[in-house]
């Protein structure tokens, strides 16, 4: 593997070809905030908090540092007014889902994000996908997954698998940046397998208070 020289925040950084900007930055102690990133998992690029500015072939663009591979002579800025604005807005939109998330609050303080800027959303989930990906990639159990798309996208346990696997594991709970995953599971399980009937009716968390569309 050959080494690539690039510039991050004015600093010459050497990285292995194929590494991401995030990895290169971390190797020299430059901190880029992340939410959906996890070292054991494939990069995802969902939260976009790790967005940085790059100059490639004369054009400046904003890219997710967790996914963008290093290139020779790439110029990267991890801090700029524009990035601050982007991170602030992204945090505010996520805080509408999870206003009490500690991880979000720490970042909110740093970027001056107002947790009440957007109206409270019914779902706690910020779709970092850590639980889903951890279960699939590390545990290989696929006990939960996503359903639907766009604003209606949710996470959902597969009751048959969850009832078998989850109580023994629960390793995804502490990964959740909103600390609410556990509640979702408990609720899902309670609704799916009421002790008295043992009914197998599938319930997903999207049946929690239904969001009024466009409200």
């Amino acid at each position: 593997m050959s080494e690539v020289l690039l510039q991050i925040d004015g600093k010459e950084v050497s990285a292995i070809e194929g590494a991401t900007i995030l990895e290169a930055a971390r190797s020299v102690g430059i901190i880029i905030p992340t939410l959906c990133h996890h070292e054991k998992l494939e990069p995802y690029g969902g939260c976009r908090i790790c967005s940085v500015e790059v100059d490639v072939r004369g054009r400046t663009s904003v890219v997710a540092s967790c996914l963008f591979p290093v290139e020779k002579d790439l110029v990267v800025r991890t801090v700029s007014k524009k990035l601050d604005r982007i991170r602030k807005s992204l945090l505010e939109m996520m805080l509408a889902h999870a206003p009490d998330s500690e991880q979000l609050q720490v970042l909110a303080q740093e970027y001056g994000a107002d947790r009440e800027r957007f109206g409270k959303e019914a779902s706690f989930c910020i779709h970092c996908g850590l639980c889903v990906r951890y279960c699939a990639e590390v545990k290989k159990k696929d006990a939960l997954g996503f359903i639907d798309r766009g604003a209606r996208k949710e996470i959902c346990f597969i009751p048959e698998i969850a009832s078998r696997e989850c109580w023994e594991c629960k390793e995804c709970f502490p990964l959740c940046p909103t600390s609410a995953l556990q509640a979702a599971f408990v609720l899902c399980k309670a609704l799916s397998f009421p002790p008295e009937t043992g009914s197998q009716e599938e319930v997903n968390i999207s049946t929690l208070p239904v969001r009024e569309q466009n409200d």
Binding site: R149, C156, I158
Partner: peptide
């Protein structure tokens, strides 16, 4: 029907969670 999805999952060895995402996506 759910039985169909389960059958497809079993035969193709694709996790049900993925099939669930596809069928709702």
């Amino acid at each position: 029907p759910k039985e169909a999805l389960e059958r497809v999952s079993e035969k193709l060895r694709v996790p049900l969670s993925q099939i669930q995402h596809i069928t709702t996506f």
